[in-house]
Structures are given as C-alpha cells and as structure tokens.
C-alpha cells in the first residue's frame, strides 16, 4: 500500500470516527486539534485502523498513537509486512 493510499484511507476513518466531513489529515495533527478525539473515541480509532488495514496494534502502542505522524508510521511499518 502506497503512502497516499494509506493517507486517503486514514482520512476516511478520521472523518467517520470523529464525525467530521471536512477533516483534512495533517502529519502534525494531534488529539488536541480534533474536537471529538478523546480518550474514549481513541479506542474506536484504533479498532477502526486495525480493521481497515488488517493489522494488530499492541496495547503498549495504543497510548502513544495520539498524533497522525505516529499512526502513519506504525501503519506503514505493520502493513508492509
């Protein structure tokens, strides 16, 4: 999967999970930038990412993935396998 495809897919997930049609993903985006990105909806985000990219995210990683760059890096690493 190419970087652009991952970004596109992840954008769709962010829009659906955080219920915002106009959301545009930025590398430096963090939970503080997205109104509905709370500790509870973060679980939904992780589950959606696992499901969409067919990867498993360890519980140790979940807490660290609170910005877009970290998420993209992890997806690219795991999905490449």
């Amino acid at each position: 999967m190419q970087h652009d495809e991952i970004v596109e897919e992840l954008t769709g997930i962010f829009r659906d999970i955080f219920d915002d049609d106009d959301l545009v993903l930025r590398d430096d985006m963090t939970a503080a930038d997205v109104a509905r990105w709370t500790s509870l909806s973060h679980i939904n985000l992780i589950l959606a990412v696992e499901d969409a990219f067919d990867i498993k995210i360890g519980s140790g990683d979940i807490e660290k993935l609170t910005n877009v760059r970290a998420l993209l890096t992890l997806i690219e690493r795991k999905a490449a396998r």
């Binding site: 769709g12 659906d16 999970i17 219920d19 589950l47 959606a48 499901d51 969409a52």
Partner: peptide, 8 residues
C-alpha cells in the same frame, strides 16, 4: 460491517 463501516 467492518468497524469503521459502522460509523460510516
């Protein structure tokens, strides 16, 4: 439905 498909 997949997980994000529910939200979609």
């Amino acid at each position: 439905l997949g997980f994000s498909q529910i939200f979609k």
